[in-house]
Lab assay of single mutants.
Amino acid sequence: NLYFQGLKYMVPGARVTRGLDWKWRDQDGSPQGEGTVTGELHNGWIDVTWDAGGSNSYRMGAEGKFDLKLAP
């Protein structure tokens, strides 16, 4: 699974964008943008601060869902 392989790169400072299971509307800005991981992966959740200004926790394994992917 590509998403599980990418988890080791989901570290503080990593750049991310919305992924396969995104369901959080425009939390990442409008139009959709990139963000920066600000915390360690914990119980399948990870913290992100978006360039647009907001921050929140997103699923990276929790509930079998992956809200994020590494930015290109």
Rank of each mutant, 00 (worst) to 15 (best):
G29Q: 06
G6T: 15
T36Y: 07
G35N: 02
Y58E: 02
T17N: 07
Y3M: 13
M10H: 04
T36L: 07
S55N: 11
F66D: 00
N56G: 15
T38A: 08
N43Y: 10
G33H: 07
G35D: 03
S57W: 09
E34T: 12
T36F: 06
G61S: 05
D47A: 15
P31N: 09
G19I: 06
N1K: 08
G35W: 02
L20A: 14
L68R: 01
K65P: 00
L20E: 12
N1P: 14
Q32E: 10
R18D: 02
T49Y: 09
Q5N: 11
Q5K: 13
S57D: 02
T17P: 02
K23F: 06
W24T: 04
G35V: 03
G44R: 00
G6H: 15
Y3F: 14
K65C: 15
W24H: 06
L20K: 12
E63K: 09
D28Q: 05
T38Q: 08
A14P: 02
L41V: 10
D21M: 03
E40L: 14
L7P: 07
L20W: 12
T36P: 01
D21G: 05
G54C: 13
Q27I: 05
L70W: 08
L70P: 09
P31K: 07
G29Y: 05
G29M: 04
T49C: 14
A71I: 13
N43L: 10
I46V: 11
G33D: 08
Y58I: 01
W24N: 06
R15N: 02
E40I: 13
D26R: 06
G33N: 06
V37Q: 02
Q32I: 08
R25A: 15
Y9A: 10
G64L: 07
P72E: 14
D67E: 08
V16D: 02
A62T: 04
E63M: 12
G39E: 05
Q5G: 11
S30Y: 12
V37M: 04
N56M: 06
Y58P: 01
Q32M: 13
D47K: 15
D26A: 08
G53Q: 02
K8G: 10
L41H: 07
T36D: 02
T38N: 08
M60S: 01
W24M: 05
S55V: 11
G19K: 05
Y9L: 10
G39Y: 03
G33L: 07
T49Q: 12
E63C: 14
V48E: 00
L68C: 01
G39Q: 06
G19P: 03
P31I: 08
D67C: 02
G39N: 09
G6Q: 15
R18T: 04
K65W: 03
R18P: 07
V48Y: 02
N56L: 04
G29R: 03
V11M: 09
L7K: 08
R25W: 14
E63L: 08
E63P: 00
G44Q: 02
D47G: 11
R18S: 03
G53F: 03
A62I: 06
T38C: 12
V16W: 02
Y9R: 09
G61C: 07
G39T: 11
V11E: 09
L68M: 00
Y3H: 14
V48C: 02
Y9F: 13
T38S: 11
D21H: 09
P72S: 14
A14G: 04
L68Y: 01
F4M: 12
Q32G: 14
G64H: 08
V11A: 09
E63W: 09
